[in-house]
Every structure is written in C-alpha cells, then in structure tokens.
Amino acid sequence: MAAGGDHGSPDSYRSPLASRYASPEMCFVFSDRYKFRTWRQLWLWLAEAEQTLGLPITDEQIQEMKSNLENIDFKMAAEEEKRLRHDVMAHVHTFGHCCPKAAGIIHLGATSCYVGDNTDLIILRNALDLLLPKLARVISRLADFAKERASLPTLGFTHFQPAQLTTVGKRCCLWIQDLCMDLQNLKRVRDDLRFRGVKGTTGTQASFLQLFEGDDHKVEQLDKMVTEKAGFKRAFIITGQTYTRKVDIEVLSVLASLGASVHKICTDIRLLANLKEMEEPFEKQQIGSSAMPYKRNPMRSERCCSLARHLMTLVMDPLQTASVQWFERTLDDSANRRICLAEAFLTADTILNTLQNISEGLVVYPKVIERRIRQELPFMATENIIMAMVKAGGSRQDCHEKIRVLSQQAASVVKQEGGDNDLIERIQVDAYFSPIHSQLDHLLDPSSFTGRASQQVQRFLEEEVYPLLKPYESVMKVKAELCL
C-alpha cells in the first residue's frame, strides 16, 4: 500500500493539533497551500530580480507567473513527485505547466533550498508574528487579574506546605514575570531571523556568478533584492546548502521555554482548584465526569500541561538535527523538520489560546482563602504575639514557653481530632496574655502579614508589564474561544 493518505478522510490519521486544537490561522501558515504558494512567490521574486539585473526574462513571463501564483494543481504535483521522487522539481514542473512561456526560467540558477529553506524562514517569521500578540493578550488578562487582587491576602506555599502570606495578585505576578520573559525572547528570536537568500547549491553562489558572467556586484544585488522582497532586513552571508540548523534550535528553545512557563502556571491553577481557592472557567453544560456528576475538573489547565510537556520535548529534535548536518548538509534534517517545526508552533498556539481562555474567566473564592488563612495564621502570628507581650512588660522566655504549650495543644486538636485551630481562643482565655487581649485582632490582621506584596504588584505592572504590552494595544480586544 502506498504511503500517505487522504487526510480529510475519517479513515486516515490526522494530527489532533490540526484537527482538534490549533487555530485556523496557525494551521494555514503550515498548510501545503501556504507552503507551495510561497515557493511560487519566491520563484517570481527571483525572476523579477534577475530581470532587473539584466537576464533575458520578459515582462510577459513575469506576468504569467504572477497570474498563476494561486493556480496550484495539487493532484498534478503529487503525481509528479511520485514520478520524480523530488518535491521541488515536482512543483517546478507543475508551475511550468500553467506558465508555459515562463517554464524555462522558473528556478533559474537556484537549488531546492532556495524555495525550501527560504519558505521555512518566512513561515517561522509569520508563525512567530501570530504567537506574539496571543502571548501579549494572556499577559494582559493576567495583569488585569493581578491588579484587581493585588491586596487580597492568601496563604503562600513553599514545598506545598503553608508559608508566609502573600497576595493573590502577587502570586499571579510570578506567572506574568515568566511570560514577559517569554514574550521578550519570542520577539528577540523573531527579529534575529535572517533570510537564507540566493546562495546556490553549497552556499557559494557559483551558479549565479556564472549567470551574471562573473559580476560579483550583481550577485550581491540579486541576494539583497530577493531578501528585501521577502520582507527581511538581512540575509546570511555564510550558508551551506541550507541555512544553519542552529536557527531551528533557537526558535524551538524559546517555544519550549514558553511551554515550561505555561505548565507551571496551569499546575498552580490545578492545585488551587483542589484547594477550592480558584477555578478555571466551567461552562453551564460542561460535564466533569461521566460517573461523578459533582466533579469540576480543571480540564483546560490539564490540557495545557499535557501539550506543554510535548512542546518542551520537541527542542531535542533540532538539537540532534543540527549535530548531524555533515559538511554542507545531509538530508537527516528533512523529514524531522517537516514534523517538529509545525508541531512546535501548533502546540504553542494551542496552549496560548487555551491559557487566554482560562485567564479571561478565572474565578476566585475569597471566603475559602480566608478560612485557610484562619487555619494557619495563628501559628504564624506567634512571633508577633511574643513581641507584643514583651512590649507590655512580659518575659520573652516565659511567653515563648506559654505559646509553645498552647500551640501544641491547638495542633493536637487540628491533627488528632480534625478540629479547627483554636490557638487564639486559648490565648484569649489565658490570664497571662490579658495585657494584649485587646491587640489580638490587630495582630491577626492578614494584611499585616503580606509585606509589600501589593506595592510590588503595582510597581511591576507599571514599570515592566504595561510598557512591554504597549506595541500590542491594537490587538488586545480579541477574545479566545474554545470549541473543545
């Protein structure tokens, strides 16, 4: 049975990233139509530049190519590739079939990587351009969430054990800070992308030097003109047959890092959902379990974690691919890159769409948070109580021993009897502590235990987050809708 299948058929496997999760716009960027249309555009740009620099290419040939950029006979191309065992030459023939007058000058002087690699770089750039505003929107939604809850005390956790208090907004800023680093890295790697350009079979530009009869300047002009037509500021000066596969490492490393950030955020949300302090959106008709109707599973956060793990592992592909590119190139890269580049971007696209949807509907339960604080705060307040007693004339050592005994009794009630923490009640009825009984409410005010959390939130948002989001103001209103 021949390899390949009808990918629109229910009898043929289709990647869930495309069929179930990723956005239509990201799927289109990695589609065959987008790819092969870009090949034709690159052939047109090459012909236009070659004509401008004096090669015998007519206006009629150029116009014929322009008129057929979208006229792609995919069936013919597939048949040609089956016959020739070469995808680029299959599309040269297919393009030439609908451009008979231009057929002889299509791909003039070029090698397969002229269309293959340059198209990949265009796709990487455009895919990054799709991700950047999506990530900015996630940051914006979380920034709104953090600002609104900047002063809401909550129990902090280290080692997932109760620690000092923080605020809900401050905790959210930990998430935002990681995503801001990801946004900066995505922008950097996007701006650092260079075009492969017009380089020939081993990167020496020998074929173009021959076409222009040894004119170095025209060869350099050709490279520059096509690079500018493709919208790049610069091209690699040095290439082998391909652009260095280190570029793929750079791009997928940034995406993998984004995956790590999203995994951490969504894990926190899942843990908070278990504590009943916070939940992701839950639709009115949504079913959490087929057997347990009360369940409210954090399905979206779980999906993000599941896909983020996949995204983090994909960076190993370009690392290994770059390491086995012998001399000017081997074909070890080809099949692998067809999979890992598309999957990385479709996965990143999915987790950003999902995280935006989550961040637009996060639900906080202040009463649950308050109750958990009441359970733990008495123990945390013991040092403040000791200091207040010393100020009232008591002995630190005597007070410490009193607190120690009462704390152990209260802990026994919590752990052995399943009761509430009654340390404060014990202190309130103990005559030894009568000098500070009137101060206990103040000493137990949760806001006095959150330090500068709310001020940190305000400063972080104003100095770091809002300036970073400013270039994306025009796209901030787009909502994230999930079908599944």
Rank of each mutant, 00 (worst) to 15 (best):
D11S: 08
Y13C: 14
Y13T: 15
R14I: 14
A18Q: 11
A22T: 14
S23K: 13
M26Q: 05
C27P: 10
F30V: 12
S31C: 08
D32Y: 10
Y34N: 06
Q41T: 09
W43D: 01
L44K: 06
L46V: 06
A49G: 09
E50V: 07
Q51A: 09
Q51Y: 07
Q51M: 11
T52V: 13
L55Q: 15
P56D: 14
I57K: 00
D59I: 10
Q61M: 12
Q63S: 11
Q63N: 11
E64T: 11
K66R: 09
M76T: 11
A77W: 07
E79L: 14
E79A: 09
E79K: 13
E80N: 12
E80S: 14
E80C: 13
R83N: 14
L84S: 06
L84T: 05
D87V: 01
V88P: 05
V92A: 14
H93A: 15
T94R: 10
T94A: 15
T94E: 14
H97G: 10
C99R: 04
A103K: 14
I106M: 08
H107W: 00
L108S: 15
G109D: 01
S112R: 00
C113G: 14
V115Y: 01
D117P: 00
N118E: 00
T119P: 00
L121G: 08
L128P: 03
D129V: 10
L132P: 12
K134H: 14
K134G: 14
K134V: 09
L135I: 13
A136G: 14
V138C: 09
I139Y: 07
A146N: 05
E148F: 12
R149C: 09
R149F: 12
R149H: 09
R149G: 09
S151R: 12
S151E: 10
P153F: 05
T154L: 08
L155I: 05
G156L: 00
F157C: 05
A163H: 00
A163L: 02
T166L: 11
T166G: 09
G169N: 04
G169R: 01
L174C: 12
W175C: 00
L179V: 12
L179I: 14
C180D: 04
M181T: 12
D182W: 03
N185P: 07
R188D: 07
R188T: 08
R190N: 10
D191W: 09
D191V: 10
L193N: 04
R194P: 14
R194M: 07
R194I: 05
F195A: 06
G197W: 01
V198M: 15
G200F: 02
G200E: 01
T202H: 04
Q205D: 01
A206G: 15
A206P: 05
S207E: 04
S207A: 14
L211K: 02
L211Y: 09
E213S: 13
E213R: 15
D215W: 08
H217D: 11
H217I: 13
V219K: 04
V219F: 04
K224C: 11
M225L: 14
T227G: 10
A230Y: 03
G231M: 09
G231C: 08
F232Q: 01
A235M: 15
T239D: 00
G240R: 00
T242Y: 02
Y243P: 10
T244C: 14
R245N: 03
R245F: 00
V247M: 12
V247Q: 14
V251E: 03
A256V: 08
V262M: 09
V262F: 07
V262A: 15
H263V: 06
I265F: 15
I269K: 00
R270E: 01
L271A: 06
A273N: 11
N274Y: 08
L275C: 08
K276L: 08
M278E: 02
M278C: 12
E280W: 00
E280L: 00
F282A: 11
F282Y: 13
F282H: 08
K284F: 14
Q285W: 14
Q285T: 14
G288E: 03
S290A: 05
A291T: 03
A291E: 03
M292V: 01
P293V: 02
N297S: 01
N297D: 02
N297V: 02
E302S: 03
R303P: 00
V315S: 11
M316H: 14
D317P: 07
D317F: 00
A322F: 11
A322H: 12
S323F: 02
Q325P: 02
W326G: 04
R329M: 01
T330K: 03
D332T: 00
S334P: 01
A335N: 02
N336Y: 02
I339C: 13
I339L: 13
L341V: 14
A342F: 08
F345N: 10
F345V: 11
T347W: 04
T350M: 11
N353Y: 05
Q356M: 08
N357H: 09
N357T: 13
Y365E: 05
P366R: 09
K367G: 10
K367M: 07
V368R: 12
Q375F: 11
E376F: 07
L377W: 03
M380Q: 07
A381H: 06
T382V: 09
I386E: 04
I386N: 08
M387V: 10
M387F: 09
A388L: 07
A388R: 05
G394E: 11
R396N: 00
H400M: 05
E401I: 08
K402A: 09
L406W: 07
A411L: 06
K415W: 03
K415L: 08
Q416T: 09
Q416Y: 15
E417Y: 11
G418C: 05
G419H: 12
N421F: 03
I427G: 04
I427N: 03
I436K: 04
I436D: 04
I436E: 04
I436L: 07
S438Q: 09
Q439N: 12
H442F: 14
L443M: 10
L444M: 13
D445C: 14
P446V: 04
T450G: 04
T450M: 06
G451E: 04
A453V: 07
S454V: 12
Q456M: 09
V457H: 02
L461H: 00
E464D: 12
V465K: 03
V465W: 04
Y466C: 14
P467F: 07
L468W: 10
L469Q: 04
L469V: 15
E473T: 14
C483S: 15
